[in-house]
Design a protein around this nucleic acid. Structure first.
Lengths: 227, 227
DNA sequence: TGTTTATGTAACTGGTTAGTTAATATGGGT
DNA sequence: ACCCATATTAACTAACCAGTTACATAAACA
């Protein structure tokens, strides 16, 4: 016996309003629903483990729509990755570091690199998946490069400012500083499950997180401060 | 047409020798071959992406043998994970940190945490896969806990020694120090593909690696040194 | 030597999955 | 009021893949 057609929301024909109702048809909404469902699915299961049918169901869309809008599972994965990665870079670019004192600017960046993955929990699983795949999808994408490089240039300027006013040491490599700032936060989030197991202590509690955040700022501060 | 049977090595019947020749039948060897092939396959593709048939082929064994020796794909994954993880903990436990001056002991640990993943490239992909899965397999395993906890106790003793002789600051949290030491190396290796892409610069070259190693030791030193 | 047990092989199975097909509904433009 | 590109659906398929079965052969041992 063929399944009865699924219940549909009644179509509101009040089409005058510019902000669209969730009507029977809304291409942009369908596309966005798919993208968001895919972000959760790929973050949770990785590229190989993710199921296209699950994405479709979670998005409330037909599986065919994924292929209609994104072409393939891999292209959908790439679209998700680009979106998440770009969002992070944009947020990073919007930090008003230039308006701050050098030491404050660097600690602000460190706090941002800690808080952002905490507030966007899909980011790290997606980046980890991508690194397991050798980074080939992100490499295939890019316009991203310039954003990142410009951040290093900004860091370099801040470090120079700090060296000039005597608050920071001279000779700090901005790229390695950036890697270290990223690392001390990223590792805490990405490896939290195995670390918690190894130490027999839940490292994901609010208290542990706050303690880690303080430690991260402390490590960065001691590395750059003039003594 | 059925395939002709694969060529077999001639059976040496000199069974007197205690160290076995790679004879027609060698259960231990077959088991080990499977384990090593599985390590490479799981490291390269993750649990979901790995193919049992590929493991069998790479091991020069029949797929049936995987189920004979390991029960299931998941149990094979767990066996691989346990082996790799335990090896690392054993190597870590063998560091003669107690024989060194406090500062030297900590930098030695930092260098070890950098060099070990460089020499065991399957470790980080496997740990990343496991963390993506929420760490549930490693959690299911354990006798591992005590090893890790004892390392923190050792670190604590070294830090106390350093505080007493005035070479290190007092009040350093050994767990967070260990996390930071791990993080600054781990992140460099685990995220090398996306970082290289983002910065438009191959960060995996010997020169870049050596530079990163120096930076890591520098960061750790500056964090613990008394100033 | 003959029986048992460990080790190995090839072919199969049942369920899953990415991707496709073909038919259909919707609504803006005219 | 109707047309047609856009959007959507259910059902299909071909490939794949983890796990199984039935059978074969080598060593262990009586």
């Amino acid at each position: 016996m063929p399944a009865s057609p699924p219940a549909r929301k009644a179509a509101r024909s009040t089409t005058a309003a510019p902000q669209r109702e969730a009507a029977t048809r809304d291409a942009d909404k369908t596309r966005l629903n798919i993208l968001e469902a895919a972000e959760a699915e790929f973050a949770a299961k990785g590229l190989a483990g993710a199921r296209v049918d699950v994405v479709a169901e979670e998005a409330g869309a037909n599986k065919r729509m994924i292929y209609y809008y994104f072409g393939s599972k891999e292209d959908l994965y790439l679209a998700v990755l680009e979106r998440v990665y770009t969002d992070m870079r944009v947020a990073e670019a919007e930090l008003a570091l230039e308006a701050m004192a050098p030491l404050a600017a660097i600690t602000c960046l460190a706090e941002f690199k800690f808080d952002y993955p905490a507030q966007h929990p899909h980011l790290i699983p997606l980046l980890n998946s991508e690194n397991l795949l050798g980074g080939e999808y992100l490499r295939r994408s890019l316009r991203l490069r310039e954003m990142q490089i410009s951040l290093i240039a900004r860091l370099e300027a801040i470090l120079a400012r700090g060296a000039a006013d005597g608050t920071l040491r001279a000779g700090i490599d901005p790229l390695h500083l950036y890697l270290t700032i990223s690392a001390v936060s990223y590792f805490y989030f990405s490896n939290n499950p195995t670390l918690s197991t190894a130490f027999g202590r839940d490292l994901a509690t609010p208290d542990e997180r706050a303690a880690r955040r303080r430690h991260v700022v402390d490590v960065v501060t001691r590395y750059i401060e003039r003594v």
